[in-house]
Amino acid sequence: MLSLLIVLELCFFQCLSLLLWLEERYETVYTRHPGFQKGSKPLLAVDNPFPMELPENLVGEKWAFVQLPFSAVKEEISSLDTNLVFGASLDLDLLGIEIDDKTLIPGLAVASSRAKPLAAWMNGLEVCSIEADLSRARLILSVGISGRYIYATYNKTPETTSEAEAWEAAKKDCGGLHFLAIQGDLDSDDCVGFWLLLDLPPPPV
């Protein structure tokens, strides 16, 4: 099990490194080429399919938009090393993200009476990001290269729309950084699953 986790982390690290390299290459090499055509269709276009229904084993019972200071996020990440909590982190040094410990990081807390099995199932996916689809009042979970699921829905009101907009704005202020926490109860301070996530657009090449 441990060796499999190492392989998955290595694959994710390599994919992330490749995406960052392509982005840097685009800015420093491709845009300066005499034949560069701005706005041309990327050669490595990735399909962005319509989101699918979430498998029943991944459905939580309650959820809420939340925020944690970065210091608390780092504490949750450190708990991943004890193997008592499911989840994954990011190499913030590789990403060049520097955040003050007091900065509030937006996240999504999901509660379930079967929190541990839910977290275990989620751990089998390469969870990438969560975004609020404001027009359809739902949350979209992105996994792997192009997998997308309808993770949750909510009643569309001025209040819920404003909350979702504020959550997306907070993500943008943190460079796309956010998290997913799975708990037995929304009022609990303990997580059984914690994923540090990032909105990372595909390279424009």
Rank of each mutant, 00 (worst) to 15 (best):
F65L: 14
V66Q: 07
Q67H: 03
Q67K: 15
L68S: 02
P69L: 06
P69H: 02
F70V: 03
F70D: 01
F70H: 02
F70P: 00
A72W: 05
A72F: 06
V73E: 02
K74D: 01
K74L: 10
K74M: 09
E75R: 09
E75C: 13
E75W: 12
E76R: 04
E76C: 11
I77W: 09
I77K: 11
I77N: 12
S78Y: 10
S78H: 04
L80T: 01
L80R: 02
L80K: 11
T82P: 08
T82M: 03
N83H: 08
N83M: 05
N83C: 13
L84W: 11
L84G: 03
V85W: 12
F86D: 00
F86T: 12
G87R: 09
G87K: 00
A88E: 14
S89T: 15
S89C: 06
L90N: 01
L90D: 02
D91G: 05
D91K: 07
D91F: 08
D91Y: 04
D91W: 01
D93C: 13
D93I: 11
D93N: 15
L95W: 13
L95Y: 15
L95D: 11
I97N: 14
E98S: 10
I99G: 00
D101Y: 15
K102N: 11
K102T: 13
T103F: 15
L104D: 04
L104R: 06
L104C: 09
I105Q: 00
I105W: 00
P106V: 14
V110W: 08
A111N: 04
A111P: 01
S112C: 04
S112K: 01
S112A: 07
S113T: 08
S113M: 06
R114N: 07
K116C: 01
K116N: 12
P117R: 05
L118A: 01
L118F: 08
L118T: 10
L118C: 11
A119D: 04
A120R: 01
A120D: 07
A120S: 03
W121S: 13
W121L: 08
W121T: 12
M122H: 09
L125Q: 03
V127L: 02
I130Q: 05
E131F: 15
A132L: 06
A132M: 08
A132C: 06
A132W: 05
D133V: 03
L134D: 07
S135L: 15
R136D: 12
R136G: 05
R136A: 05
A137D: 00
A137W: 01
A137Q: 08
A137G: 07
R138C: 12
L139E: 06
L139I: 07
I140V: 10
I140W: 06
L141F: 10
L141V: 05
S142Q: 06
V143C: 15
V143S: 08
V143K: 05
G144I: 13
G144A: 13
I145C: 03
S146A: 10
S146C: 14
R148N: 01
Y149N: 13
Y149W: 11
I150N: 13
I150A: 10
Y151I: 10
A152I: 01
T153F: 11
T153L: 13
Y154Q: 05
N155L: 15
K156A: 13
T157V: 04
T157R: 07
P158Q: 06
E159P: 05
E159L: 13
T160P: 01
T161A: 02
T161S: 09
A164W: 08
E165A: 14
W167I: 00
E168H: 00
A169Y: 11
G175F: 09
G176N: 14
G176R: 04
